[in-house]
């Protein structure tokens, strides 16, 4: 009836909202969302780098330790304890004796006695090719592998070997392995701490943002509350908003982090650092890096939910 008057007039564009309504609160207004997105983006770059560092460390440890586990080597020097040189036959006799002992040992899987030729080729870089090795007594070298299914400390071979001849040396690689593991372990721990700190920072940032928004839009919130909107109705909107904000920020951050990783991989490839293993990541690791934005989003979502419910519970 009253609309008669206005029927002919063109719809005004000023003050008209044609955009689809997404939230009951004006969440998309203001720069707060952008700041949060930026912050979460940066955090995600750090998280990607920390995660990748931890992956690379694991790969390194893996490479260095594989092939060393369950192995030991025994050196029978061509000198007795008092520094007296032994003849080649004496050394060979000792090698035989040790071999016999090891063969009977239940934890030993197999034994490899290095031949004279192998030993010569090992020492030739130091002593020269044209050396006549018959003149110098060569030590005996035995490498052995232990059975994996028998619980056994390789160090326990020490005593019976000493009994055969006190100068015999057992090298189980344990000493330097355990040092290496301690080193990479502490690096890994540092990466874990970094990741953890990033998570906490994200939680604090999101909780702060949610609280600020709830304070700014207190009137709107109260209205929704008075209309009978339950805590879940209200919190689901803030949850969705925070999830999307954090997710978008984290995707951008993860992409930048990924590009940085590729760059680092490329540079280290150029430098030919052989100590580092391949910078390539396994499928599982790539998936977990891709899942990072999702994880960050979920973290933001649950933080928002908790904060909103806490704040709403103070309303009458």
């Amino acid at each position: 009836m009253f609309s008669h008057f206005f029927k002919k007039s063109k719809p005004r564009s000023l003050g008209v909202s044609k955009t689809k309504r997404r939230y009951d609160l004006p969440l998309e207004k203001g720069a707060g969302g952008l700041f949060l997105k930026l912050l979460i983006g940066m955090m995600s770059i750090l998280a990607v780098l920390a995660l990748a560092a931890s992956f690379v460390l694991s790969a390194m440890t893996e490479r260095w330790t594989s092939g060393l586990e369950n192995r030991a080597s025994i050196e029978i020097p061509a000198q007795d304890q008092n520094g007296k040189l032994l003849s080649t036959t004496e050394v060979e006799a000792l090698v035989k004796e040790v071999e016999q002992f090891l063969k009977k040992h239940p934890a030993v899987l197999d034994i490899q006695v290095m031949s004279k030729e192998e030993i010569t080729s090992l020492v030739s870089p130091w002593l020269g090719e044209d050396m006549t090795y018959d003149q110098i007594p060569l030590p005996g070298l035995i490498s052995l592998r232990f059975r994996e299914d028998v619980i056994f400390k390789p160090e326990s071979l020490q005593v019976p070997l000493k009994n055969i001849a006190p100068q015999i040396r057992l090298d189980t690689h344990q000493a330097w392995l355990s040092q290496l593991l301690r080193f990479t372990g502490s690096l890994n721990f540092a990466a874990l701490i970094v990741t953890f700190t990033i998570g906490i920072t994200t939680i604090i940032a999101v909780a702060g943002a949610v609280q600020a928004r709830m304070a700014i839009y207190h009137e709107e919130l109260e209205l929704l509350h008075l209309m009978g909107a339950g805590d879940r109705y209200i919190s689901s909107q803030l949850q969705r908003y925070m999830f999307l904000t954090a997710f978008q920020g984290a995707i951008i951050g993860a992409l930048i982090g990924g590009i940085l990783l590729l760059l680092m991989g490329w540079i280290s490839g150029k430098m030919d650092i052989t100590l580092l293993p391949d910078f390539s990541l396994s499928a599982v690791q790539i998936i977990s890096l891709c899942a990072l934005p999702l994880l960050v989003g979920m973290l933001a979502m649950f933080t928002a939910r908790y904060t909103v419910i806490q704040t709403l519970s103070k309303m009458p």
Binding site: P26, L223, M227
Partner: peptide, 21 residues
Amino acid sequence: SKLRQRIGVVFQDFRLLNHMS
């Protein structure tokens, strides 16, 4: 909340949400 959903209120100061149509 459930009871509030059964009550309609016209506020003296309207309390409309200005960011939505």
